[in-house]
Design a protein around this nucleic acid. Sequence first.
DNA 1: TTAAATCTTATAGTTTACTCTAAGTCAAGT
DNA 2: ACTTGACTTAGAGTAAACTATAAGATTTAA
Lengths: 142, 142
Amino acid sequence: MKTVSKTQYTISQFAALVNLTPYTLRYYESLGLLKPKRDQAQRRYYEKQDIAWIDFLRHLKGTGMTMTELQKYVRLRAQGDQTIKERISLLQKVEAKGQTKIKELNKNLQIVQHKLDWYRDKLQGKIAENEDFGSYLAKFKE
Amino acid sequence: MKTVSKTQYTISQFAALVNLTPYTLRYYESLGLLKPKRDQAQRRYYEKQDIAWIDFLRHLKGTGMTMTELQKYVRLRAQGDQTIKERISLLQKVEAKGQTKIKELNKNLQIVQHKLDWYRDKLQGKIAENEDFGSYLAKFKE
DNA sequence: TTAAATCTTATAGTTTACTCTAAGTCAAGT
DNA sequence: ACTTGACTTAGAGTAAACTATAAGATTTAA
């Protein structure tokens, strides 16, 4: 049996590593999203696997989850395997919302693209002086 | 020549129509995003075409544009056709940012999907007791 | 005539997610 | 010995985009 010494980071080292501030790390911890270990002097230290956890949190946040939702997820996790079904349904909702978000973003971007086309046509004099964007857009309605 | 009477909405009628509040409409106006006409008594009234404008603003906002950016766009618009090129480059940036946003959202949702798969595999006992999500994820790295 | 709606300006409150300061304690490195 | 960094609790500040209140004036529909 071999003992391997694990890399430990202080809060400011770790903050730099994951592009957050010590303030933010303590804030997340206060919300229950992190629980770094402590040394003999009660100072936090972070390890390699904490990077992966932060990354995962970021992905969840990036889907639009609020801090409160993250807290709920983390609370379930802490309760062990019997909450896996609940976690699944939580993440399914997250996924569904995310897909909706993408669709809406796409729709909004399409309008922007049409507007860009309209401007370019207008610059080329390809648009009747009195045709406005509204009637132009109407052409693209299915 | 025929005179057609146009529908006019009071601020609260219009607010209900576009799902905003009178507060918000005045707020938008204070930012220069709207300029409703006024009646003899200086009360705002809105018309059909204002609905289209609100919709367009919503699409722009929906891409992630801030109020400040919207203000800039509206200011350019008010300056007339000589700002069309500038408006084009503004909207192009909006579009580029939006595409980036979609890519990121997709990446984040993929991670969520992997996590869901992992949970489902785990529920089925298909995952080694000691395999964590990190090593599971590693399988999907290109 | 009176209640309801609108107007104005100015200011305050709300929410989310940080971000920072204060103020005092403690421990480790040079 | 001393500077540096970390710790604590509590609370304040920031930014965005609303949302609301106050307070007084005016107008209009019933």
